[in-house]
Design a protein around this nucleic acid. Structure first.
Lengths: 173, 173
DNA sequence: AATATATGAATGAAAG
DNA sequence: CTTTCATTCATATATT
């Protein structure tokens, strides 16, 4: 478990590669510097190409992947915008309704649509879907899963002997 | 402290754990298991009927709505699509040793889902991104930063004297 | 060491 | 379908 090689790997700077062993990316000071600079310069949502380029460059300072750059900008942007006021400082009740009003800034425009037909609830047909699934009470969840799977895949939902099976299998194969 | 730990509410299992308070759907391990299984079985874009059925079934494990199923497949498919392992240009040498302490506290059962969802590595186009960045060997990291920054912001990547700068700045303004 | 905070990572939800 | 936003979780780091 040799983890002695720490810090100064590139020399000349404070490449504090702290958690060098952890599975999670730990940006070096130089990497953060560049990223922060790019951000401050106006870069908010780099494209895939930009992510690739930035990642390639930053790899010179240490291990880094594209996803790290991606996440970095996502998080930085989100947290920069948040700027939520300091909690009560005592204990976060995990339910700060107070600043919940920040809400969405873009959902407003979409209000005109109202309750149009959303995809997942399209088809207002009076299908008694639930009827199709008499949830049998099982003792454990695992039994439920098994039961469900067998229902979904093993046999038709409805006991329509000669009716075209309506199970999922036939629907998407 | 003193956090209202409203444990299981729907059943005698790990129903709606984690952010039980949040309004956002928090799938249980069983739900994820079934969804993942369906996905792995080939289901990519379930129809409204299928969504209804799946939702109805999964409701046995905890609160769930059709839209949750809809979104789940939407996200899972989108993130699965970006499966490009093109590590081209990234240094994989420092492969993390077997110290993967991914250990989730609650998502144990949902391990079926491996490593997928990648957005940052979209585009499999053969862009010679690396070509644009001939990493010049610098003696110190600071020089590297300077060099990089000048490349990123000071002048075009390619020596296109009067060609529209292809630098990041023009890409996102 | 224990606690607080900063931030990397993941994903549900939704807009485009 | 693709891209982005928002919330949450996990952990490294900083502070006391």
């Amino acid at each position: 478990m040799g983890e002695g090689e720490r810090a100064a790997e590139s020399g000349g700077f404070s490449s504090t590669r702290a958690g060098a062993k952890c599975g999670r990316w730990n940006p070096t000071a130089e990497q953060v510097k560049v990223l922060t600079d790019l951000f401050r310069s106006g870069l908010r949502t780099p494209s895939t190409d930009q992510i690739q380029m930035i990642s390639a460059h930053l790899s010179a300072f240490g291990k880094i992947e594209s996803k790290n750059v991606f996440y970095w900008f996502q998080n930085h942007k989100a947290r920069e915008r948040h700027h939520k006021k300091r909690r009560r400082g005592l204990r976060d009740e995990e339910d700060d309704d107070g600043d919940h009003q920040k809400a969405r800034s873009r959902c407003l425009a979409s209000c005109t649509k109202g309750k149009q037909d959303l995809f997942w609830q399209r088809q207002e047909r009076e299908t008694e879907t639930l009827e199709l699934f008499p949830l049998k009470s099982c003792s454990s969840d695992e039994e439920k899963v098994m039961s469900m799977r067998s229902e979904l895949w093993g046999r038709p939902f409805l006991d329509a002997a000669r009716d075209p099976p309506l199970d999922l299998r036939l629907s998407f194969i």
